[in-house]
């Protein structure tokens, strides 16, 4: 037990991912400690989202493996990794658009609840209690991420910023150890970004480790404990934000790779 707690929460070892001839990730190794906010930055097309897809099981890596919470994973289904405690949001929001905000979050509770077909048909006390607990928790999470519209609003009728926060609430509903956010501030205005920052700090304070892909340099600098920089699928720098910002390789990558 002690042993596991001392290990990094997530440890990537030489992860490689190829699409045809294109090397989207090559030899990426990094580790994320428990309780930190870890930033992942890099120009567009650097492979950040691909890395998320690998650690959440949507893609299978061609090389390397990763350890999460003391277990090794190589080729695993997304639901197995979600069960293990990795939850994520998507760069291009992927909510259950025609379901309500509340239902979206309730679905996040799926893997921590049990009722099956017989529970559904019998609707026995255990099932009713579970349903009540799911709805209650989902309502609390909506409030937690700051969605004040009624839970009965369809996900697609929420504002852009609310949709991003709803994705976070849905991910939190899975009781994750690691919350991986793919550009959560994209498209948000300054006030929204500020409240997102407060939300992420609150999430970290609750004991959840955060992995954050973000372009907003101010947000990264103000929030992250450590940052890794990807460029053309390779990790070119890692360290505390101030160091990384001054790293000549990083400056070159950003200048050469087009303005972000």
């Amino acid at each position: 037990m002690n042993n596991i707690a001392a290990l990094p929460l997530l440890q990537l070892s030489s992860i490689g991912k190829q699409f045809g001839g294109l090397s989207a990730l090559s030899d990426v190794s990094l580790h994320i400690r428990r309780g930190e906010i870890y930033g992942l930055i890099g120009p567009n097309g650097a492979g950040k989202t691909t890395l998320f897809n690998v650690i959440t099981g949507l893609y299978q890596a061609n090389a390397g493996e990763f350890q999460f919470n003391g277990h090794s994973y190589k080729a695993c289904k997304p639901h197995v990794l979600a069960q293990a405690g990795i939850a994520r949001t998507f760069q291009n929001i992927r909510l259950f658009a025609n379901l309500t905000a509340l239902e979206n979050v309730m679905i996040g509770r799926h893997l921590r609840t049990r009722a099956g077909v017989f529970g559904a048909l019998l609707h026995n006390l255990a099932t009713r209690n579970e349903e009540r607990a799911i709805a209650k928790r989902a309502g609390e999470l909506l409030h937690y991420v700051g969605i004040e519209k009624p839970g009965q609003t369809l996900a697609k009728h929420l504002s852009y910023g609310e949709q991003r926060r709803l994705e976070i609430a849905r991910a939190l509903a899975t009781d994750p150890l690691l919350l991986a956010l793919d550009e959560p501030a994209a498209g948000m205005n300054a006030t929204e970004t500020e409240s997102l920052k407060a939300l992420l700090q609150m999430i970290r304070a609750s004991g959840i480790t955060v992995l954050l892909i973000e372009h907003d340099v101010k947000l990264i600098m103000g929030l992250c404990d450590r940052v890794a920089v990807l460029d053309y699928g390779k990790k070119i720098a890692e360290g505390i934000p101030e160091e990384v910002r001054l790293n000549p390789g990083v400056i070159a990558a950003y200048l050469g790779g087009g303005d972000e």
């Binding site: 979600a82 529970g119 048909l121």
Partner: peptide
């Protein structure tokens, strides 16, 4: 009963977005 259950919600999640459903831990 099925429609208003945990199973029914998981089905609807698959209908809406299979990738997101699996990332939320649903064994699609």
């Amino acid at each position: 009963r099925l429609e208003k259950s945990r199973i029914g919600r998981a089905w609807m999640a698959i209908r809406e977005d299979e990738v997101a459903a699996s990332a939320m831990g649903i064994n699609t």
